[in-house]
Design a protein around this nucleic acid. Sequence first.
DNA 1: ATGAAAGCGCTAACAC
DNA 2: GTGTTAGCGCTTTCAT
Lengths: 343, 343
Amino acid sequence: MVRMIDVARQAGVSSKTVSRVLNNEPHVQDAMRERVREAMDRLGYVPSISARSLRSRKSFTIMLLVHDVRSAFVNTVQFGALRACQELGYHLQLALVSSATLESEKGLQNWFEGTLRSGQPDGFVLFPPMASNPVVERVVARMKIAAMRVGPHNVPDGEHSATVTIDDKLAAYQMTEHLLELGHKRIAFIRGKEDQFATQARYEGYAQALGDAGLSVDKRLVLPGTFDFESGLDAGERLLKRKTPPTAVFAANDDMATGVIMAAHRAGVDVPKDLSVVGFDDSEVALRTWPALTTVRQPLEELGVAAVNSLVSAKNTPETRLASATLPFEIILRNSTAAPRES
Amino acid sequence: MVRMIDVARQAGVSSKTVSRVLNNEPHVQDAMRERVREAMDRLGYVPSISARSLRSRKSFTIMLLVHDVRSAFVNTVQFGALRACQELGYHLQLALVSSATLESEKGLQNWFEGTLRSGQPDGFVLFPPMASNPVVERVVARMKIAAMRVGPHNVPDGEHSATVTIDDKLAAYQMTEHLLELGHKRIAFIRGKEDQFATQARYEGYAQALGDAGLSVDKRLVLPGTFDFESGLDAGERLLKRKTPPTAVFAANDDMATGVIMAAHRAGVDVPKDLSVVGFDDSEVALRTWPALTTVRQPLEELGVAAVNSLVSAKNTPETRLASATLPFEIILRNSTAAPRES
DNA sequence: ATGAAAGCGCTAACAC
DNA sequence: GTGTTAGCGCTTTCAT
């Protein structure tokens, strides 16, 4: 193995100079810099990551903290984050928070601190519901490791934390407007997990759009859900059993919307003629339902890219604060919506 | 930060003893082992990976080389790998091979060597189609880093490489048998990507089952595909347009099977009464089609777990060769298959 | 069975 | 602008 000292000897300088060149530090003459670079190339020098990070406490590693749910949301953001890391010469490391760990406050804190200590990432990316967990918040503040949250939150940006998201409320508002414009009046809403702020934000957009159209929210048309297929199926079945079922259903994400469509199929209800269904996310399933799903496109890959870019540029320019970003969404009209049969 | 020396002082021993306990080395009395463990817990000790790997020349890192397709297959295996890493105290790092990189032999080699050098993983996990790429093969052999392939391959185990998979051919054989037992005679097969050995293995199982039932393969019923939804949709549409369409379709994976079901919906063909459809993988979509898909369950998470376990135990016992494994599959009967209307 | 000392490869802190 | 010294937290080696 070629060490820094070997490069130094080859170039006839001290190892500190080689270190300066490696880290692009100032105070090295250009000629010398060149000589050192040549020596590195000639010897095929590859720096030891462990030695560097042991000494400097930097790791060139971004950590993605994922919960054990393998959602399309997380996977797509992960993909964007990976692309960005690759481009910037960073490593992407994954860490898994089990449900058990999430349940105990003490356990979460220990796990979280341990993970950060042992991995020593330069920054990390958080997803709901961890992103708005107060324990996580405290640890972030104390350990001073930069954290980017993905998705909407009611947590303000901190000294070491920021958020990338779309405007969930506005998107839900516009989606609801679309249904209203088609002539729907009985529009049901299926909520997601209550520990995720997206649920609230999307519900508010829905409620406000109804209000602005002169309608009030009918509580019986607002059902709980858990963001997964089964809960959408369940809610759909319950809605369709009613004496006066809704003419449209807005599910807080695509997985649940897929469940509602399935419920309609089973009940022999035609989508979209008898029931319009819309979702949120534009995940892969949205194109594979029959009919294809009208939904809100979140730029998931771009969210991942933005999170990593924010972390890395904050690291490189110590005076700058971590930057939050709100990316544009898009309402995607497909075939799961139509005017109601009668209004 | 709590260091090993702090634990040692707390337990009233030397740091070497703590090190022995940490690494599960022999020559420590059980009582003492227990005392040290307690001290670790009390102080919330987390070993520094960089220090360990600097000294021991192990990185405690496994690298997952993923292609840019975010398939359910890769994601689920990744999840298993992550779980296993977490349990063993390893880190999981992701690396992304772009399609562009894969195309040029020279480019792939450079990228691959650079990635391995800079990440210095103790081992890595490969997916199709990289797993059977000869360039990758060469680099693995030269750099002597352990590699586990996930999925079936026609590449023999090497000095530093092995495979975890199910018996794809046998699984396809049994799936085809199921269709034959229902009374189907015109069974179509949709192939996957040709650079993935799974395509061939599954086709062979299909062909052999037909042969053993005294039927011969009708070439017109074997269609190309690319493992994705669209190609299944396309193949399904072409098959259903025929004068004498098949009574059953075996798609080489679930995504394509989902496409076939979609094609049937669009053509007004009833599944399973008019057309039986089966897939392969038992990915999440299999439960979300209507009707739910009969398929082959691959233990994807377990494949990931097995890959990591193999890598880690080979690392810990230098004399042992990397172990290959063939895990059990399961034929999952759901509602997309039935006897043909007339035979 | 346990401990003391040395040092892995690198960079922070300070000297010149 | 460049070099010297010390030491990050751990495991190796050797002693007891």
